[in-house]
Each structure stands twice: as C-alpha cells, then as structure tokens.
Amino acid sequence: MKQFTAKEVETLFNEGKKLNIVDVREVDEVVAGKIPGAIHIPLGLLEFRMHELDKSNEYIMVCRSGGRSGHASQFLETHGFTVINMTGGMLAWEGETE
C-alpha cells in the first residue's frame, strides 16, 4: 500500500496540486475540521458509497491517526482503486482545515 505522511500531503496541497482526499472519520470527528475539499465518507459507509468514487482518480485516504484510512485503502485497492494512505492522519495534519 502506498503511503504519504501528513507533511507530504500538506506540501502537495500547498503547491495547489489537485488532490482527491477521502476522509473516513465519523461525523463527530469531522465536525472538528477536515482538509479543505476532502470528501467525507465514514469508513462504515465506504462499501455502500464507493460508487461515488471514480476509478480513474487516485485517492488519498485520511482518518484520525492512519489506522482506519489504512483499512479503507486496502478495501478500495481490492476493488480496483488507486489509493494512498495518509500516515499519522489528522493528528499529524498541521495545514488548513474547514
């Protein structure tokens, strides 16, 4: 599984790169802030909402610390998606939030 640190993702974000970020945290966690432009799909709903994602895109998976996003990355990879797990999750994110 491909992985980026939160700092690597933040650098790409700050450079204005087009990032497809999927935040798999629960609703109450996202209320505290998410990466601007991230799509929110709680991990428990990912199986039912993966049709909303485009297999021709690469997705960066995010959660609180990197564990759930790792599971989400593995799940999506088995369904033919190209994904990157953001290690450290939002605990390590120092960039802007919305």
Rank of each mutant, 00 (worst) to 15 (best):
L91H: 13
E8M: 06
S65L: 09
H40R: 10
D23E: 06
Q3G: 10
V9T: 09
M86V: 03
F81S: 00
K55D: 04
H51Q: 14
G89E: 06
L19R: 05
E52K: 12
F75H: 06
I35A: 09
S56P: 13
H51D: 15
W93M: 01
E47K: 15
K34E: 14
C63W: 05
H40I: 10
G33V: 01
D28H: 15
R64M: 13
D23A: 07
I41Q: 00
G80S: 05
H79R: 13
G80V: 01
M90C: 04
S65K: 02
A72H: 01
V62M: 10
K7D: 13
R49H: 14
I84V: 10
G44P: 04
T78Q: 15
G88P: 00
E26H: 12
T78D: 14
N85I: 05
E58R: 11
H71T: 14
F75L: 06
E52F: 07
T87K: 12
M90N: 02
R64F: 13
L46R: 04
R68Q: 09
T5R: 01
S69N: 06
I60Y: 14
A38Y: 05
E96N: 11
M90Y: 02
G16N: 03
G44W: 11
A6L: 04
L19T: 02
N14K: 12
V83D: 04
N85M: 07
G70I: 00
G37P: 08
K55N: 06
R68S: 03
A32N: 15
M61F: 07
G37A: 08
E52T: 11
T87Y: 08
I41T: 00
M61Y: 05
I21K: 04
L43C: 10
Q74T: 14
G70M: 06
F81T: 00
V24M: 05
G66C: 02
I39P: 04
G33S: 03
G44R: 12
A72V: 00
E52A: 08
W93C: 01
K7Q: 15
W93E: 02
E26C: 10
F4M: 14
T11W: 09
R68W: 05
V9N: 07
E29Q: 09
V9Y: 07
S69R: 08
A6C: 07
I60Q: 08
S65R: 06
G80D: 03
F81G: 00
G70F: 05
T82E: 13
M1A: 13
M86A: 03
N20V: 05
I84W: 06
F81Y: 02
S56R: 13
M50R: 14
K18C: 10
G88H: 04
A72I: 00
G16E: 03
L46S: 04
H71E: 15
G88K: 02
M61N: 05
S69Q: 08
K17H: 12
L12D: 11
A32E: 15
K18P: 11
G88F: 07
G16D: 01
E10T: 10
